[in-house]
Design a protein around this nucleic acid. Sequence first.
DNA 1: CCTACCGATCGGTAGG
DNA 2: CCTACCGATCGGTAGG
Lengths: 183, 183
Amino acid sequence: MARATEIASEEGLEGVTIGRLAADLRMSKSGVLGHFGAKESLQLAALRHALRMFEQQVVERAGREQPGLPRLLALCEAWIDFLATVDLPGGCVLTAASTEFDGKPGQVHDVVAEAWAGWRETLGAEVARAVTDGDLPELEVEQVVFELVAIGPAVNQALQLHGDRDAVRHAHRAVRRTLGLSS
Amino acid sequence: MARATEIASEEGLEGVTIGRLAADLRMSKSGVLGHFGAKESLQLAALRHALRMFEQQVVERAGREQPGLPRLLALCEAWIDFLATVDLPGGCVLTAASTEFDGKPGQVHDVVAEAWAGWRETLGAEVARAVTDGDLPELEVEQVVFELVAIGPAVNQALQLHGDRDAVRHAHRAVRRTLGLSS
DNA sequence: CCTACCGATCGGTAGG
DNA sequence: CCTACCGATCGGTAGG
């Protein structure tokens, strides 16, 4: 399971093949197939494993903060730290899966799209709450969510493609600039 | 050539296989291989074709504007329009190739990384010029470039994964907000 | 969990 | 540009 998610991180979810995983685990192909039934189920399991890592390290951690601005900042900061320190050799599986599966119909596509839509809703709810609380000025929630969601793929690209560690600092500052807070 | 780039757009550059392209073009596999020599050359050709589309529709178009703020805005706006209207079935090849090849060494990886580094430099030069001209306040160029570069993948994701056309408007407004201009 | 096997497809070569 | 072919790997099945 963990191994399947590692392969997905390095090679993409399409690289999680039955034979490849079997060889890595020193099992037979039918041994692997017996657990998952078909390749798509195997890809879904690897994707859901990556999603659980994200939920635990980002959403649950930030959930300890007060709703509104404190939780919004905690979500964004935990997300950036997750992307920067994720224990996977090829970076965040969800970011890569977005472009890998955006044009491929199926259950994997649907889970990826729902995960990103859920993240947008999570952020949007805290933005709206922060406005209600008076901690953020009146603003268009969808606009702010668009700008916040953009930061993750950007820091992932800078780290994975360019090895640019400065991007982590730029990402944290981008969050505060987007929200109109003093950095 | 154009067909190879279409396949890359829908399935990723790894989906541009010799047999697949041969079938689409009603040629034999060896006919295709005769033109390119090896699969990596074929992928490079498809990638360079996509790069030329980007250069023509974004960089050359914006190059008609005055250096500095006018050209910077034209670059960002042409880029968003390119992502929103690109004549490829699965969206921008360069955005997808970034996550597909960030962990796969080789010539394709290097061309992708150079293309994105070049785009950062192009934007950075115009930001610096706009500051010199007094059209933008003193700011950290790298920070602004990070935030501007983030907008492309974000609008690509919103369009390709969610079919969210509102993202085009959000992206244009994000450019102006990032630069501190009245929207 | 295994061996043995299926048809399809992969990148690529030989020879023309 | 073609046919014919190579070994490797793909997802998956049969049978145990």
